[in-house]
Amino acid sequence: MSFDVLDEHEQGELVQKWLRENAAAIAAGIGLGLVLIFGWRQWNSHQASQGIAAASQYQALADAVEAKKNDDALKVADALRKDFPKSAYAVLAALQQAEIAVGKNDLAGAASALDWARDHVRDDSLAHLITLRSARVKLAQGDADGALKLVDALPKDSFASTAAEIRGDAYLKLGRSDDARKAYEAALADPKDTLTLGQSNSLVRMKLDDLGGGAPPAAVPVTPAAEKPAS
């Protein structure tokens, strides 16, 4: 007999029978659903509280930097990296550590902080910026080949002018003047890079001029004077 031709009583009996036979499974399913909902809410709450704590620590770091208390800033940055390694604030803290280290001429410390930041960053643009900073530190350490390796791994359209300038600096250290000249010319040819524009292109132009490079000013065409008609 088809289910749709059963009367209401028979349908009710079948439903009750099915419920009795599957009560355990239904209860387990409801319980699992409640656990998942509760767990999801707890996870979201935990993530929110972690974010607030990380932001609070980063503010403490910023305050210490502003007050020029570098030792305190480094301690807070270390705590951020340890307690919230997956947080964007930890990456920013590592960048601040690198900047402080450079100020102390501690290039090894700066390189280490930048390596950590590059390993933990999730934003592509920030990752590219960190790579450029790492390349500059390698140049300062005398590792021109290492700097070239980092810059050459970047996408061509990522901070192209700055990458070209660093590439030129690396070539110059390696004694490859022609390649350095071409790199500096490429840096000047792409004005879209805000990193280069922020410092103005004058420094790159000076580097290029020191190499005797750069296109000379365009000659102004001279229009020949009209001949006087013969008298």
Rank of each mutant, 00 (worst) to 15 (best):
S2A: 08
F3M: 03
F3A: 06
D7P: 13
D7A: 07
D7Q: 12
E8N: 08
E8I: 10
H9G: 09
H9N: 13
E10D: 13
E10Q: 15
Q11T: 08
Q11C: 07
L14C: 05
V15F: 14
N22M: 09
N22L: 06
A24Y: 05
A25F: 12
A27K: 07
G29D: 01
I30Y: 12
L32D: 04
L34N: 05
F38M: 04
R41E: 10
S45Q: 06
H46T: 15
A48Q: 10
S49P: 04
G51C: 11
A53F: 09
Q57M: 14
Q59S: 15
A62E: 14
D63A: 13
A67P: 09
K68P: 01
N70M: 09
D71V: 14
D72K: 05
D72V: 09
L80N: 06
K82V: 06
D83N: 15
P85D: 07
L92I: 02
L92W: 08
A94V: 07
L95G: 10
Q96T: 15
E99K: 04
I100Q: 00
G103K: 03
N105F: 02
L107S: 02
L107I: 11
L107Q: 07
G109Q: 07
W116Y: 15
W116M: 01
W116L: 03
A117L: 10
D119G: 03
D119Q: 12
R122N: 12
D124M: 05
L126S: 00
L126V: 11
A127K: 12
A127T: 07
L132I: 14
K138H: 07
L139R: 00
G142P: 11
A144R: 00
A144N: 01
A144Y: 03
D145V: 15
K149I: 11
D157T: 08
S158I: 08
S158G: 06
A160V: 14
A160C: 11
S161N: 05
A164V: 09
E165V: 14
E165M: 15
E165Y: 14
I166G: 01
G168F: 12
D169N: 13
D169F: 12
G175V: 03
G175M: 02
A180Q: 01
K182F: 02
E185K: 09
E185Q: 14
A186T: 15
A187D: 07
D190W: 02
D190N: 07
K192S: 14
D193G: 03
D193V: 04
L197V: 12
G198L: 06
V204H: 00
M206P: 00
M206I: 11
L208D: 04
L208E: 04
D210W: 08
P217V: 06
A219M: 10
A219C: 01
P221G: 00
V222Y: 01
T223I: 14
T223H: 05
T223D: 07
T223W: 04
P224C: 01
E227M: 09
K228W: 12
K228R: 15
P229L: 09
A230L: 08
A230E: 10
S231K: 13
